[in-house]
């Protein structure tokens, strides 16, 4: 392989890795928010996002209703938030008692959602596109499409919004406090439940956004979105699982690494590659790749 050829390949690979990595990061942010506040690994994250994406499909394609894309998304957001509230309510009695039991219960929620999606929408594979005008232009060796720009814009908006909420609002201060020391917060009279609920709702919204943006690149079926969440989990692990910037950066790293792996090695062993990434990260950087770079804060 010539150097010129390598450079011609590598730039588009890096670019598309960053784009899909943004979405893994958004998915991972949802997981990390839930974990930071309530110490629960939310295994229903992917299933809930999948349900949301299917709701958007069902209500906008005419298979259930034919609404506009925007109102279908609004409906899906409503449903996803409702499900998040219900699933938090289910594990609320045990959330302070056992992280492990609560984590198992989220698996149960995930199974129910999975079965529900299959019951209502079947096991078919469907397409769900973003309603953005199609155009693309070249930037050197990289081809930038409208989809890429939409993903970047949404990701930046979400990360900025989350940053403002967490750094500037009262809720954000409470969230940071709870993730640092829940006991002290309770002593000070802070309502842990409302902070938990905030993070679960934020997690549901982030998951749904990530799913809606990732689906146009592949297709939508009852299994693709939950397995897409493995990328989000990997991103969270690479970022240390309790660091929000870590999750975002981890997402981009995972996106780039996956692209390189699938181009140069094999596209058929993506999950195995992610497994390897998780195990290597846990062994050599148990607190995440960015531990030393940014410290433990937020």
């Amino acid at each position: 392989m010539s150097v010129a050829g390598f450079i011609r390949d590598i730039l588009p690979l890096l670019w598309s890795g960053i784009i899909s990595g943004c979405l893994y990061g958004v998915g991972a942010l949802g997981l990390v928010m839930v974990f930071k506040s309530s110490r629960v690994v939310n295994f229903s994250h992917g299933n809930l996002a999948c349900l949301g994406a299917f709701v958007v499909y069902g209500f906008s394609s005419g298979s259930l209703l034919s609404l506009s894309w925007g109102s279908a998304v609004a409906l899906a957001l409503g449903i996803a938030c409702a499900v998040a509230v219900v699933s938090y309510a289910l594990i609320a009695p045990i959330v302070f008692k056992s992280d492990l039991a609560s984590t198992i219960a989220t698996l149960g929620v995930g199974l129910v959602l999975q079965g529900g999606v299959q019951l209502v929408f079947g096991a078919d594979i469907v397409n769900l596109d973003l309603p953005v005008p199609r155009f693309s232009f070249s930037l050197g060796a990289v081809r930038v499409s409208s989809y890429d720009l939409a993903v970047l814009a949404v990701t930046i908006a979400i990360v900025a919004g989350l940053f403002v909420i967490i750094e500037r609002t009262k809720l954000g201060v409470a969230f940071r406090a709870v993730s640092t020391n829940p006991f002290a917060c309770e002593v000070c009279g802070l309502n842990l439940r409302s902070v938990h609920l905030f993070s679960w709702l934020a997690g549901a919204v982030l998951g749904l956004v990530a799913a809606l943006l990732i689906v146009p690149t592949t297709f939508l079926s009852s299994t693709t979105v939950p397995s897409f969440m493995l990328q989000a989990f990997t991103a969270a692990v690479v970022g240390g699982f309790s660091s929000l910037p870590g999750a975002a950066v981890g997402g981009i790293l995972v996106g780039i690494a996956m692209n390189l792996f699938s181009f140069y090695v094999s596209p058929e062993f993506m999950n195995t590659f992610l497994l390897g990434v998780i195990l290597l990260t846990l062994n050599f950087f148990p607190n995440g790749l960015l531990e030393r770079a940014i410290g433990g804060r937020v």
């Binding site: 690994v41 984590t103 969270a236 692990v237 999950n271 497994l275 998780i278 195990l279 846990l282 148990p286």
Partner: peptide, 17 residues
């Protein structure tokens, strides 16, 4: 333990491929 749980999820998803 939660890290192990996440890693086992990757294990389960890697198995079919």
């Amino acid at each position: 333990g939660i890290y192990l749980a996440v890693a086992t999820m990757a294990l389960a998803l890697a198995l079919p491929e």
